[in-house]
Amino acid sequence: MRRFTALVALFSIAGGLVLLFFSYPIAVLFLVGGRGLIEALKVPAFVLALLVTLITSTVAAAASVVFGVPLAYILARHSFRLKGVIEALVDVPIAIPHIIVGVMIVLAFASYYGLGPLLAAHGIKIVDTLIGAALAVTYVSATYTIRVVQSAVQMLDPELEVVAMSLGASRLRTFFSVVLPNIGRSVASGALTSWARAASEAGALFIVAYEVRFGHQLVYPAPVAIYEAYVGLGVISAAKFSAAMLVVVLGIFLAARLLLGGHR
């Protein structure tokens, strides 16, 4: 049994202040925007905006898993020359200002430079499309999945894989029967973090996909829509859209966490 010492008291006060700092603005947001929340969810353009954001962040989370898990596994299980460089590269997207990520995506995929002409020749448009928006939010969010999965693999006893292979399982079979089931929870939790990060992205979208062609309409991604409301209509109006988006995104996030089983 831990004793309640002065140190614990001091740390509790410090920790409590952080938690207060986290929750107080949320409380005020709902106080101000809460009443307009339902109203905001009845605005068709905003519902479409939320839909676009949910689609792009789900694509980002899925891409993080499909491409990130293999990388995470290799980083966790193998050492090789220049591994440090790759480790750093995985963290780079977090360090680059996201507005710059937007500029880079446009330059790399939608300009006269890089892959732009090739993609254009095949009729693939990046700027103001779902593809472009998904590329941008994947760039800024995949790192979280990679890191979470990497540490989960590192925690997993490598002997399990040795045993599975000694029993005749191929490497692929070993990965899917022994590794993946035991890190499944971490994959899901990493994907969820990437998803939440992707849903909250605005900076890169300002450049790549301020508006998204969605069916026959042009739709703002939700964070851009809120920015538009803030600039055009003021902070009170932005508050109700913000509260609405927060309810949807946090609702999905918390429900998924609950499904994953509480504190992990």
Partner: peptide, 16 residues
């Protein structure tokens, strides 16, 4: 070890 048909029991048993 996989091709040599050796039954392996590691120190911590390595149960899945």
């Amino acid at each position: 070890m996989e091709e040599r048909n050796i039954g392996y029991v590691p120190q911590n048993y390595g149960l899945f």
